[in-house]
Design a protein around this nucleic acid. Structure first.
Lengths: 247, 247
DNA sequence: CGATGGATTGACGGGAGTCAACTGTCGTGG
DNA sequence: CCACGACAGTTGACTCCCGTCAATCCATCG
């Protein structure tokens, strides 16, 4: 279909993997420059999503995985009734939609938490290309494997940790992800409301709020709205990992 | 190294994918006969594991993924202290070790719950072969994607469901997996002790035991030791999925 | 037959959910 | 410019589910 190509080019004139600041974290991480061109060719740029907009809805036909370029997303699975489960937050360079590969439809919705841009990667093209580029294939395997391990960590968090430990772990994990992206690990902004944090961690909003207050009174963090400063990372880590029973 | 080949051949004379009763569920599911031969060639058969033996230990070098042939395994991750987390049970045709692909070491131990045989699939060979066989590659992607979705279901279970709902879900999931493998979905044997069920579901052993008793008194199931009969599947399913708050 | 480990049952207490009221804070429009 | 509404976040009171501790039962096996 005829599209306003000029405009798109203007908006996305530098939206190429070679110039993308995320290339060292993202899917094409291991590719040579010439291979990266091939990869680049299958990617579709999308207009930015506004806060609250869906990247895809639960039940939509699965066609593509997405790499987050900027902003952030949450993935939510709704199962009969108003009982949602927030299964993941996605930050820049992370891949959304990997859990849909063996199904015709996305098993959950992906919703922007703020203004967010993504790279769309049609999966059939990706699969084909991964035949020619072993590094790309390996990176895709690794991405999925890493997400599996993340999920296992999450299961451990949900089944063994107290509310305090969950929130401490959450903050540390976020901090770590920011650090790896070149941002401060000690001072960052939460893009999600408390309710989403609670849903993700298996806690009531009120509990999240209470613990944030407690952490502040213990000088572990300083929080103002969604701005977070981590004041005592060491103690926070200790709290997140300490055993439940004896000391 | 010189091995007692004669003996191995004797034991495994029919351990080939073409004659394996699991071929319709297992990794080579989508392969043509000739391709299956190639796949078959990279597989290493292993002597059966006895109950309690490790297939691999947490921290071992990652080399292979494993397809369960018979029996069952649990995967356990130990994190400092005696605080284990049982992250999964594996039944015949399922793949163990997919969460290790992007790490040099296995992130958890795989332990046989009963006498168990597995097919070892060296991952570098599998990756190479997946370059030539798109169906194999697709199946590998699908296996990982499916495990991701399972993990998400598990996260939902751990963060939203009551103890009763967890056990009901567990029984139903098991029943379903048995059904798909051609066994009775209404009558089966648990290969794991109560403690493992509790660990997996994020419950204390005592809670598991209490709920099993309650389910019996409600005529939902009949349990004797590890033998389970599901008496009222419909009610069990309803219980597993019903909303927590209002009706 | 005793020993050992798994499973069951009971009593008790605490952590976190629920309900409810209150307090910000932002964006819109009068 | 400020009033208003809507929504996000906070705080308190109460309740209850489930974990912990402890005792007992039961099976299997040496």
């Amino acid at each position: 279909m005829p599209e306003p190509t000029r405009h798109r080019r203007a908006v996305w004139h530098e939206a190429r993997c070679q110039t993308c600041s995320l290339s060292s974290l993202c899917l094409p991480l291991a590719l040579e420059l010439e291979d990266m061109d091939q990869f680049d060719a299958i990617i579709r740029r999308r207009t930015p999503l506004k806060k609250g907009e869906h990247l895809f809805h639960q039940g939509d036909d699965f066609t593509s995985v997405y790499a987050v370029r900027s902003g952030s997303l949450k993935q939510v699975t709704t199962e009969g009734g108003g009982n949602d489960q927030l299964t993941n937050f996605y930050l820049p360079s992370e891949l959304v939609g990997l859990d849909a590969i063996d199904e015709p439809h996305y098993p959950g919705s992906a919703i922007a938490l703020e203004t967010t841009t993504v790279c769309e990667i049609p999966f059939d093209r990706l699969d084909q290309l991964s035949e020619k580029l072993p590094e790309l294939r390996g990176q895709l395997y690794r991405s999925m494997s890493k997400e599996l391990r993340n999920d296992r960590r999450m299961m451990r968090l949900l089944s063994r940790k107290t509310a305090d430990q969950r929130l401490a772990s959450f903050l540390i994990t976020l901090s770590d992800r920011f650090r790896r992206r070149g941002y401060s690990p000690y001072s960052f902004r939460l893009s999600m409301p408390r309710a989403d944090i609670g849903n993700y961690l298996g806690l009531a909003v009120e509990t999240v709020s209470r613990i944030v207050s407690r952490f502040q009174s213990q000088s572990l963090v300083a929080v103002s709205g969604r701005e977070v400063q981590i004041l005592d990372m060491a103690r926070l880590q200790q709290l997140a990992e300490e055993e439940s029973p004896a000391a």
